[in-house]
Structures are given as structure tokens and as C-alpha cells.
Amino acid sequence: MASAPAQGLPLFYKDLQPLSSLDHADWKARNIGSASFFAQAHAVPLTVEEFISAQRFHPIVFSAGDNPVPLALMGLNEGVNVFVDENGQPNREMYIPAYVRRYPFLLARLRPDSDELSLCFDPSSGVLGAFDEGDPIFVDGQPSDVIKGTLEFCEKFEQAGAQSGFFMNELINNKLLIDGEATIQLPDGSAPFVYRGFQIVSEERVLELRGDVVRKLVQTGVMPLIYAHLFSLQLMQVLFGLQQEQGKVPQPELVLPS
């Protein structure tokens, strides 16, 4: 598995600080014109409501272990993102996951004994600060429209995360997940590249489901998401080819974030 983020923080985040009208009253938000944190991200968390859009460009797999999460693949090897340049800017058509668009913000519980979520940010991002130019974060002690929009986006992301949890529980409870393997055969007939270290849905197990279970999965919207995932796996070969084109020689091991 990939090394854990610093201090056990989520992927991309180096630090977290709650946004405060007292501590950050005069701060502004600016567009830094780059997303270097994304430049070497080969696997990014995905919510189920993004499956239909993401499956056009990215293989969708599930992390290994007992608590798997959906991931959109940007590359087949750790540190390889074939869709962006060194600044994290897209260099070809792609889907940018909401997880990426949310950064440097997220909602977090500041106290373990409370369910209340507070808007936090990564102070190392360079997006927020006491800048001369930019959009105010607070106006007369109240969140600005910029922050209100950010908060709404983060709230929707949390709701989508809950829907993703339901989806994953259905896969697990119905024993539909199996260890995945992608075999890439080169035209020259040399030994194939074999990628492991992730999970996928077993199409065979889906076809063996009882009729009442299938009906439930269709009615709850789970079945279309399963097939969006399965269709997306055909892009493994495309991803491999892009790595070759960019001189990012692939190694036969897919390492996903823990």
C-alpha cells in the first residue's frame, strides 16, 4: 500500500485548521493557478454519484482491505498521473473528482464527542491567507459568498459519501467484491504486465444473484453503478498506453492509497 498521509490526514492534506471568523477575519482566498498536489496522484477517492461521468475516462476500482472505497485511476503506478502536467493542470480530457475540487477544504469533527462538522482547510495550500488580493473570506464577521459556496459543496460531498457507504455495504453484504487483476499484453509478445492490489466486482457473482436481490439492487440504483464500474475496467489498457506514450515506464504493481 502507499504510505499513509502525514499525521494520518486524508490524501493531499498536510495540515488542517478550522476556519474562524476571529483568526481569519481579514484573510482572502486566491486562485494560485496550479494544483501540484494532484500532479502525482494515481488513484483518487470517488463518490458513487460520479461513477457515470468518471467511467468515460478512468478505470474505477476499489481499494483492498476490509473497508474498501471507490477510486478513480489516473495511472497504474504510484506517482503517475497521465491526465495532468507537473502543475496538476489537465493535459487531456478527463473527469476531475469532487475530492480534488474540494481541496484545500473539508468538513471535520473537531470534538470526538460531537457530530457537528466544521469547515476546515489546509493552511499549507497557499489558497487562503492575509493577501493583498483575492476574495474576502468573511464580510462583517459573516462568511462571504465564496465561503458559503464552499460550505455547500463540502456538505454535498459528505452526503455523496454517505450514499457511497450504502453502495459499498451492498457490495460487501452480497459478497460481490473479489481481488482484481489486470493483464496487459504487449504487441511484441513479451511477458505481460500484471497489475494487482485492488478489488473489483465479480460479474459472475452478479449473474448468480437471486431475483429478489437483483430487484433490490436495481430499485436502489446500485446495479447501474456496478455496470458503470465494470465497463470502466476496459480503460486499463488505455491507461497503460498513455503511460507508455509519456515515457512513464509502468511497473507490474498497482499501489493504492490506504
Rank of each mutant, 00 (worst) to 15 (best):
R92E: 14
R92I: 10
E93M: 11
M94F: 08
I96R: 01
I96V: 15
P97N: 13
P97R: 04
A98T: 15
Y99Q: 06
Y99L: 03
Y103Q: 08
P104M: 00
L106F: 04
L106D: 07
L107W: 01
L107D: 01
A108K: 05
A108I: 11
R109Y: 05
L110R: 06
L110N: 04
L110M: 13
R111C: 03
R111P: 04
S114W: 08
L117Y: 04
C120L: 05
D122Q: 03
P123F: 01
S125D: 07
V127N: 02
V127A: 02
L128E: 10
F131Y: 15
F131T: 14
D132N: 13
E133P: 02
P136N: 15
P136C: 11
F138Q: 10
V139E: 15
D140M: 06
S144F: 00
S144Q: 03
V146I: 12
V146M: 09
I147H: 05
I147C: 07
L151I: 10
E152N: 06
F153N: 08
E158R: 05
Q163C: 08
M168Q: 12
N169A: 14
N173P: 02
N174K: 08
K175S: 15
L176M: 10
L176T: 11
L176Y: 12
L176F: 13
I178D: 03
I178M: 07
D179S: 11
E181T: 11
T183G: 04
I184T: 05
L186E: 14
D188I: 08
S190C: 05
S190H: 02
P192T: 07
F193I: 08
F198N: 05
I200A: 05
S202T: 11
E203Y: 00
R205V: 11
V206T: 09
V206A: 00
E208A: 15
